[in-house]
């Protein structure tokens, strides 16, 4: 394969990769937006719940003894169909109140611990686990010390539906955009490489005697080479004839 063909193929591969990257960027950006919108919708719920719990903590009761929190988490879950679970756990990572009452007393998953340890931004942390989204907040006492954590588990069903539809829409668009873009890039690349090697092809044609000398870097050289070849052939042939004539003389 000629090097110019290889480079044209590399340019096509780069263009194709960039197209897929663009599709990925649009998908990633809009999918993240859908996720952030879902999370934003529970901001209010999370804030209300946190303030209610913190108000009770502010009365001086240890978090584990505030029984009203169980009612609060159950009521919070009931207000939004996308909320799968609401949980309050201690700084040690033990579930204190949970809409799934059977889980009370159990330890939180390792991924939650990791998120709390290293991924808290503005008292908010989030984890994606088994397709669901867990959004949490730190609850603090009047001295600003963490007294526990709140976690709301959201269903990813709506996000998944949105993502599937988005993939279909982008694939359909890519199906006609990609061939056009690749064809245009191919035409441009072929034209450019044709332009860069035009004088080389002219040189070949001149050397083969198929084309009259033109202009450019190679034109003079080609004419010189052609003349030298013709002269050499003529000289050798004349010499051969002269040599043969020595016998006749």
């Amino acid at each position: 394969m000629a090097p110019s063909t290889r480079i044209i193929l590399a340019l096509m591969a780069t263009t194709a990769a960039a197209l897929f990257l663009c599709a990925g960027l649009v998908f990633g950006g809009l999918d993240r937006l859908a996720l952030r919108s879902s999370e934003a919708n529970i901001d209010f719920l999370l804030g209300q719940l946190r303030r209610s719990v913190e108000a009770n903590v502010g009365l001086g009761l240890p978090l584990a003894n505030i029984r009203v929190v169980q009612n609060l988490v159950e009521r919070a879950k009931a207000t939004d169909g996308r909320v799968l679970a609401v949980e309050v756990f201690s700084p040690a990572g033990v579930s204190l109140f949970n809409t799934d009452r059977g889980s009370i007393g159990e330890s939180i998953p390792a991924a939650w611990r990791s998120a709390i340890r290293s991924r808290i931004v503005g008292d908010r942390w989030r984890v994606e686990e088994l397709g669901d989204i867990i959004v949490g907040e730190v609850m603090r006492n009047d001295f600003g010390e963490p007294v526990g954590y709140l976690a709301v588990t959201l269903s990813s069903e709506a996000r998944d539906r949105h993502a599937e539809g988005l993939i279909v829409a982008l694939s359909a668009r890519l199906a006609w955009v990609a061939p056009i873009v690749l064809a245009a890039a191919l035409v441009m690349a072929v034209f450019m490489f044709d332009w860069t090697t035009r004088d080389i092809r002219q040189l070949a044609a001149q050397l083969l005697g198929r084309q009259a000398p033109g202009s450019g870097v190679f034109a003079g050289a080609a004419q010189g080479a052609r003349s030298a070849v013709d002269r050499a052939v003529r000289d050798f042939e004349r010499a051969a004839d002269d040599v043969m004539k020595t016998d006749e003389a």
């Binding site: 809009l30 988005l166 279909v168």
Partner: peptide, 9 residues
Amino acid sequence: LLQAGLRHS
């Protein structure tokens, strides 16, 4: 591609 994505989203 963004137009297609926005039309859906």
